[in-house]
Amino acid sequence: MICNHLPFFCFEMMKLPTEESIVNGIRDHNSKILQYVYDTQYPIIEGYIVHNQGTREQAKDVFQEAMIIIYKRVKSGKLELSCKFGTYVYAICKNIWIQERKKYLLRAELLRQQPLMVNDPGPADDPLLQNHLKVLFDKHFYELSEDCQKILSMYFNNFNVEEIRTAMNYKDLHHAADRKYRCKKSLIKRIVNDPLFKQLKNEQR
């Protein structure tokens, strides 16, 4: 039980972390847990990739991608472990690598048939537009109080009100929910009233 809340403690006691504490550690960016996952799982993944026509660099990319997929699932509450965590990582890496190999073969085939292909990125991938959106967001987000920044970061990363209440040390749920609402409304109003927002919104259309 203590490992769920204090993963460091598990390491201090030289106990291996449980599946649950690994999942919690990933969710909380706990570097000791990430270190443990890397040390125990990466050699297996590297062995698999290198054994299947890959390189060590590709093994690292696959492992990183798999960890990001797992992280997103943990964050969205969609991770349901029905097997060992290591088995899960291995299965994801294997799938990524199979997809990568397929893509590589397909790309090679396309290049063979049609040597020149030009892709025009849509607005979602336009780096200039993305940069403007980030500037606009940062400008208003950092004008909020530190508490509001923390609350919104947690809220939009799927922390529930009870978790926000605990993290912010608020006395009751109602206060936490109220603060969450006010912070959200305040930031939305600031962004909507910024002329740059209207301009960017038109560009995105």
């Binding site: 960016h29 570097s31 990430l34 890397y38 990183q64 960890m67 990001i68 992280y71 997103k72 964050k75 959106l133 980030k134 606009l136 967001f137 940062d138 987000f141 919104l152 970061s153 939009f156 990363n157 959200k184 930031l187 939305i188 962004i191 927002f197």
Partner: peptide
Amino acid sequence: LIRDQLQKRDLDDFTKTL
């Protein structure tokens, strides 16, 4: 915009730590 930026920031932090 707020949701995307905060989720992206969180993911960037995680990737950096990893």
